[in-house]
Design a protein around this nucleic acid. Sequence first.
DNA 1: ATTGGCGCCTGAAAGC
DNA 2: TGCTTTCAGGCGCCAA
Length: 292
Amino acid sequence: MPELPEVETVRRGLAPVFEGGRFSRVEVRRPDLRVPFPPGFARRLKGRSVTKLARRAKYLVATLDDGASLLIHLGMSGSLRIGRGIEEERPGTFHHPRSKDSAHDHVVFHMEGGTRVTFNDPRRFGLMDLVRGDPEASPHLAGLGAEPLGETFDAALLARLFAGRASPLKAALLDQRLIAGLGNIYVAEALWRARLAPARAAGTLATATGRPAAAAGRLVTAIRGVLEDAIAAGGSSLRDHVQADGSLGDFQHAFAVYDREGAPCPRPGCRGTILRTVTSGRSTFACSACQR
DNA sequence: ATTGGCGCCTGAAAGC
DNA sequence: TGCTTTCAGGCGCCAA
């Protein structure tokens, strides 16, 4: 759920608070999320300042002034709230509308100056870790594939990654070891934009010599485009979010196929209908007419 | 070595 | 109306 665009939206909302800020105290209200907090988590954060808040795939990476890094993954239902005093607002997250329940406020970062950042995660699929040295070398990030918004992500790279793979495009795109940051929603949207069927073999995007097929270029453009559009929409939802009912962000209204089973395909001239199929127990949405 | 499937976890929605 | 069941999915793990 929080996929790359949602995490980037959260990063942008949180950066003004974290960057240059210092943790006066960190409250950890349970021993674990999806995995245990590392030993001494709260103690090691206390007194540290954040020099930079970055994003890698779906991870937030806060660089600390002692050289360590705080990693935060939102899982499926994680959100971060910024507040001081009684009032709090969310910097823009993908969370459940009524999950404001403080019973799920698992971590509270108290910043010097009085601002609070509260991590809420009803389903506890999120995780936090504290790693020393280069965070890219940490177990969480080391195995991640290409950053889809990075400069090196192009048709040639995609063709190399997918060459020889018999697995469906959908599975290949969801594999974080190949391309990192896409989830079920944006994979569906990107494949629709590229007019590619989810079940098509990933290897068909490369020629026999390993060069990119035309479809590889379309897919790269589609991935970048859908992520950029979603980030732009998430950003715009930030303002609304303050008075918010907890909606996803504007981009949900722009879905072409995701969660639109039975709807007419929105592609001009296409008379197809959006179909929902289930693969590995997961919903897949696509137009059977224009996606090949 | 890849690739598919399961289960974690909770709340919303659908079903009876 | 109220209870029960299903579904959502990121990701680690296991199995074929």
